[in-house]
Design a protein around this nucleic acid. Structure first.
Length: 234
DNA sequence: AACTGAGCCAACCGCCCCCAT
DNA sequence: TATGGGGGCGGTTGGCTCAGT
């Protein structure tokens, strides 16, 4: 399945980035642009794995990143977008200029989840999140080195008796409101909101998807944008 | 002062799809 | 068609800080 972590390569630096490393990365990207992350560490003179470089740039060093606290308006937008999109942090982040998916994810997990819970909203907490709380307690009780328990539940997928894979899509709340638009001839290239359609297509052969979702309803960006506009105004 | 518990956030991990070969 | 690298994403962790006891 997954490959071995790229950071496992011997001799690579891990953990917090130093100011010097930041400078090297910024300098290199300013001169050569983003992309081709695999070659960046070597070319920039960094002893970091490519993913680490990308993450550092995307979440911290990018010049267009907005610093400072998330304001009430942004918070409101996050809540609404999360209600619409679920844990699609990157999609949510694209609607909040200057904010990163990581930042929004952290903000959600640290602030909003708790806040909404206090207000009586039901927030689904994963088993591992619950476990995290237990780990925290243990950690603070000086029980260290808690091994990471593997692994996630994985893609929700079942197989019927014929071996047909049935992918259970991530739930969305609004699909009953929207009719699929079969006529849409939009620009696929920029259709980031079509991600769900992609997810379904990926599991191409012998695939049945349950319930109505963004995916099988073929909701395209245009419709989703309209929906967002509408629901955010409400 | 020392300890404990909780919050926060940067960074890592594992998985997945896309796409070139 | 199969394979593997590149890159993106969401979930989770590590480690620091701070308030409370």
């Amino acid at each position: 399945m997954g490959r071995s972590p790229c950071c496992a390569k011997a001799g690579l630096q891990r953990g917090q980035w130093t100011a010097n490393e930041d400078q090297l990365l910024i300098k290199y990207i300013q001169c050569n642009g983003e992309g081709n992350w695999n070659s960046i560490p070597q070319k920039a003179g960094l002893l970091r794995c490519p993913k680490s470089c990308r993450l550092r740039w995307m979440n911290y060093l990018r010049p267009d990143i907005k610093r400072g606290n998330i304001g009430p308006q942004e918070e409101d937008l996050i809540i609404k977008l999360h209600a619409l999109l679920g844990n699609r942090w990157s999609l949510i982040a694209r609607r909040l200029p200057g904010r990163t998916d990581n930042e929004i994810k952290n903000y959600w997990n640290c602030h909003l989840k708790k806040k909404l819970k206090e207000q009586g909203f039901a927030i689904n907490e994963s088993r591992l999140s619950k476990r995290r709380n237990a780990i925290n307690k243990s950690r603070n009780n000086k029980i260290h080195h808690v091994k990471k328990k593997k692994k996630k539940d994985g893609v929700a997928c079942i197989e019927d008796e014929t071996g047909t894979k049935i992918y259970i899509p991530k739930p969305t709340r609004f699909t009953s409101i929207i009719k699929s638009s079969d006529n849409y001839q939009g620009n696929r290239e920029n259709d980031d909101m079509n991600e769900d359609s992609d997810r379904t297509r990926r599991n191409e052969s012998k695939c049945i998807t349950l319930t109505h979702t963004v995916a099988q309803s073929k909701i395209e960006k245009r419709n989703l944008n309209l929906l967002l506009k509408f629901s955010l105004r409400a």
